[in-house]
């Protein structure tokens, strides 16, 4: 029952996209669109097949995804404890909020020039851009999350005998979790864009690079293929990991994220 409804929901979701592809398949030959302007469906299919067979697509995807994964995991591991520590005291969190806000506003793409200067073109610069896109947004949201936990909840825990450690693990961390998840979702959104931009500028492998190089040769079929891969990957990350995570915490607990 559950399974069939999920499958039908997926079908309903995919149907409009299928219609769009069909439309594209008809429009390109009928109007004689030149391949330098926009590719035909079979051309993109062939490009996809070729790049899968010669392993280049996998290499680009693996490079992009691993950069995002490393940067994000590192950032979350550092940002969450830091954000919670900063949020424990009202005074400290009020003082630091404008600072964190300023840096989270700056997060991501704006760091590309200086990152490439400090780390040179390549892996280090790109991971740095992703790290700080996620780091400041997550730290800021964690700080915000901790400071929105009602004081009475902390009082309740204290009067039930919670010590410092239990306060962190049983009250502050779960209390800030909805904000943390929202922060990760937003930060990853910035990081993903930052990744594509940084790969266009500063590397020789990855999805952004694949697109940008294809442009030099007017290979629109590779560009469109890359765009579809980027869109699909992000949709999968967002819908299969981030949205369910957000739902599980916010809706079940009845918390509204700030």
């Amino acid at each position: 029952m559950e399974r069939t409804s999920r499958i039908s929901a997926a079908l309903i979701f995919i149907a409009p996209l299928a219609v769009l592809v069909a439309l594209w398949a008809v429009v390109v030959p009928v109007f004689g669109v030149r391949p330098q302007i926009f590719p035909s469906v079979p051309a993109v299919g062939r490009a996809g097949l070729d790049s899968i067979l010669d392993g280049s697509l996998l290499r680009h995807v693996a490079a992009s995804v691993s950069r995002v994964a490393i940067g994000t995991v590192l950032a979350v591991l550092v940002a969450v404890p830091l954000g919670i520590l900063m949020g424990v005291s009202r005074g400290v969190s009020a003082f630091l909020t404008p600072l964190m806000r300023f840096f989270s506003v700056l997060a991501g793409i704006a760091w590309i020039p200086i990152a490439t200067l400090w780390f040179g073109y390549g892996f280090g610069a790109i991971v740095f851009v992703i790290f700080n896109a996620v780091f400041f947004v997550v730290a800021y949201n964690t700080l915000l999350g901790v400071s929105t936990i009602p004081m009475t909840l902390r009082h309740a825990a204290a009067s039930l005998g919670a010590g410092r450690q239990a306060m962190l693990t049983d009250v502050l961390l779960p209390g800030a979790l909805p904000n943390i998840v929202t922060g990760i979702r937003t930060g990853l959104g910035f990081a993903w864009r930052g990744l594509i931009a940084a790969e266009m500028i500063a590397t020789d492998v990855g999805l952004g690079y694949m697109l940008f190089v294809a442009r030099d040769f007017y290979q629109t079929e590779v560009i469109v293929l890359g765009m579809i891969v980027i869109g699909t990957l992000w949709l999968l990350i967002d819908r299969l990991i981030l949205v369910p995570l957000e739902r599980a915490t916010i809706e079940r607990w009845g918390l509204v994220s700030a």
């Binding site: 926009f38 864009r193 266009m200 697109l211 560009i223 765009m227 980027i230 869109g231």
Partner: peptide, 8 residues
């Protein structure tokens, strides 16, 4: 995403 549109 916006930036992926840049090349085309």
């Amino acid at each position: 995403g916006d930036i992926a549109w840049l090349p085309i």
